[in-house]
Write a protein that binds this DNA or RNA. Structure first.
Lengths: 197, 197
DNA sequence: ACTCCTTCAGACAGATCTGTCTACATTATG
DNA sequence: CATAATGTAGACAGATCTGTCTGAAGGAGT
């Protein structure tokens, strides 16, 4: 099954996923055509169709890759903190660090979902990612002793989504501190703890 | 300049805007082609290009129309309440009523912005709308006596955007109560008032 | 009656997109 | 060496999209 090369050039599949990640995320799924992806990947068109079957499946694979990468990043950020309250805030801090990246272009799932037709592979991938995010927030809310973990988890997801939207559309990376402060308030209100800085 | 007819059929401009509003909002700006818009409007293609100049300008006019309609709706919802605190919550209640509409498909500006190229007419329209929303929240926050009206205004906009995203992508119209409760908490925290139900 | 303006209906050009197909090169393995 | 899998390069078909253009119909005002 290959997958051991290090200096040699990666497989066609890996190059296609890398090119799809750069182009689809930067410019949108609908805007970028197949020809630009294969040119950027340095791959023949037949390789794309042999490997993935079609554009929609490539988009699905691109979203699955981002799902895995984001889940890894947030899981690591959470693991670095000790208390559930700090772990919830660590999610917003990790998100805020993404806002400062020059290649930041908002949440890939929201953007792809806004373009895709309902019921397709894109919506499947978006549902999976959003379910994972909500489960993360809800679990941490429960561990923090929230009276209603499900409600606090949903509230934090609202802030997380809203912050991503604002960072994308308002070009305002200071929104990270806004969402962090709001999360602090909501956590305090839901757990009855003090909201000290 | 016309504009007095009532029973007769509306002008080509009005029919085009109505068709654009239905199709662009329901299926996306990029997905819907010019031919479908003019067919749905019962209008010749030349009328579209004579009236608006091109697709991008039609999209811009469609977004401006939605901006005006949404501003009217929220302004009326705010005017029905007496205190600034209730007026802020009225914005979320009005948004929540939109979630239950069968033709609800999320925030038109976020969806169009996710598809459009940066720096174009779509982004102009989105900036205008988002600026209006933020000014509304900030003004109400100041009138409510918030210690930092700008921060509370931004926080409420996070919730507003997040609620719209969740209603669109999770098909969960109960998010309205979640955002309402979160807004209540954040208002209470920022004004020092009690957050009674 | 005559003219101007809007509108309609649709052909047409030029570009682009997805997906298929052929033919050839490379590489690993038996 | 031989074979099979994988990848490359690019032509090609079929569809679709934006935008332009021609030609005719209808209504309003002088």
């Amino acid at each position: 099954m290959a997958s051991v090369q290090s200096t040699a050039k990666p497989s066609a599949r890996e190059r296609l996923l890398a090119a799809a990640n750069e182009l689809f995320y930067a410019e949108g799924v609908q805007t970028v055509g197949i020809d630009r992806v294969i040119e950027h990947a340095g791959v023949a068109k037949a390789s794309l169709y042999n490997t993935f079957g079609g554009k929609e499946q490539l988009v699905r694979a691109y979203l699955d890759t981002r799902h895995a990468a984001t889940a890894d990043r947030l899981t690591r950020a959470v693991a670095e903190r000790d208390t559930p309250r700090e772990q919830m805030l660590a999610v917003f801090e990790s998100q805020g660090r993404q806002f400062d990246r020059p290649d930041f272009h908002g949440c890939a799932f929201i953007r792809a979902g806004a373009e895709a037709s309902p019921g397709g592979l894109v919506q499947e991938a978006a549902d999976a990612f959003r379910g994972w995010m909500r489960a993360l927030f809800t679990r941490l809310a429960a561990e923090a002793g929230a009276a209603d973990p499900d409600t606090l988890g949903r509230q934090l997801q609202l802030l997380y989504d809203g912050a991503g939207i604002s960072a994308l559309m308002d070009h305002d990376s200071t929104v990270a501190s806004t969402s962090h402060a709001a999360a602090t308030s909501l956590i305090a209100a839901a757990t009855g703890a003090s909201a000290e800085a």
